[in-house]
Nucleic acid binder design. Structure first.
Ligand code: FES
Ligand code: FES
Lengths: 152, 152
DNA sequence: AAATAGTCTAGTAAATCACTTGACTTAATC
DNA sequence: GATTAAGTCAAGTGATTTACTAGACTATTT
């Protein structure tokens, strides 16, 4: 399971992707639209900014906006930035690798091999899906169409 | 990330799969082999027994053994039994479904659609991999061969 | 009867999560 | 240049979950 934090980040970024190119957006506006606790969202956006994903402007007329176009930001990236390891086990995580202390030999651990397969499949999907895709899917689904069509 | 509990369960069951047909095995023997805290392992095995995956015998010469052949127990099953939800979000979990309260409409939520894709890919792998596969992979890897070969 | 094993109910220390508080900085506008 | 509208940042906190442990009990074999 990913954390609320990661989920909030995805939602906030999806909103900003929808508004991309229309100037900065207020934290509180995003918070209201997506029902995210405002002060918590502040933390999250700040962190994403420090990682270079967002830019911000202070003072009146300020707010947040994407640092790059939505097509160049992947869901995988976002999850990794917000601390959500994609892997099911530490020993197969690229970003949060940690040895399994109880395992005698990592190279021959059957569990690890399977979990690595899962991790790779997960990463493939999440790294291939961009914020632009996320938004588009939502819109297509809203039109009642099959949301998978476009991904072919 | 799956819990230690789930990992321990997988390891213990893998051991029991290796010894399948050779009579019961002691908790303490499994615990020693896999470096699992003994009393914690007791809890885990008991739970798996109550779910029907294991049988046990008390008294001298007793211990635990698989209730079914290793080829008929999938890794996915085990993870679900030990409380590890496969999905990255509650709204796409089959076993631990919970609505996303902040999401306006589940059907058109782009995030959910992507996460569902991930869940399905994950479940496909984990439900197709049995304890027998797990053991076999470990053995093949130990021989220095490519562990993926056999799965074709 | 003695020894061997699993069963079951509690409890607990540590970590993590999901936030909140409040003081501070920067920028635009009047 | 004062006011107001924003983002920034460091701490703290309450609830929950995790990863166990303790200890008394039950069943089976020798
Ligand atoms: S090395 Fe991580 S599970 Fe074995
Ligand atoms: S419904 Fe679960 S993320 Fe939107």
């Amino acid at each position: 399971m990913i954390s609320q934090k990661s989920k909030y980040a995805l939602k906030a970024l999806a909103v900003l992707a929808r508004e991309y190119g229309k100037g900065p957006m207020l934290i509180s506006e995003i918070a209201n639209q997506e029902k995210i606790p405002r002060t918590f969202l502040e933390l999250i956006l700040l962190e994403l900014k420090n990682q270079g994903l967002l830019h911000s402007r202070k003072g009146r007329g300020g707010g947040y906006f994407l640092a790059k176009p939505p097509q160049s930001i992947s869901v995988g990236q976002i999850l990794r930035m917000t601390g959500g390891p994609l892997a099911l086990l530490p020993c197969v995580s690229k970003t949060a690798y940690r040895r399994c202390e109880e395992c005698h030999d990592e190279r021959t651990c059957g569990i690890r091999l399977v979990m690595k397969e899962v991790r790779d499949a997960t990463a493939k999907i999440l790294d291939a899906t961009t914020l632009a895709d996320l938004v588009k899917r939502g819109q297509l689904a809203a039109l009642g169409r099959d949301a998978l069509e476009f991904s072919i």
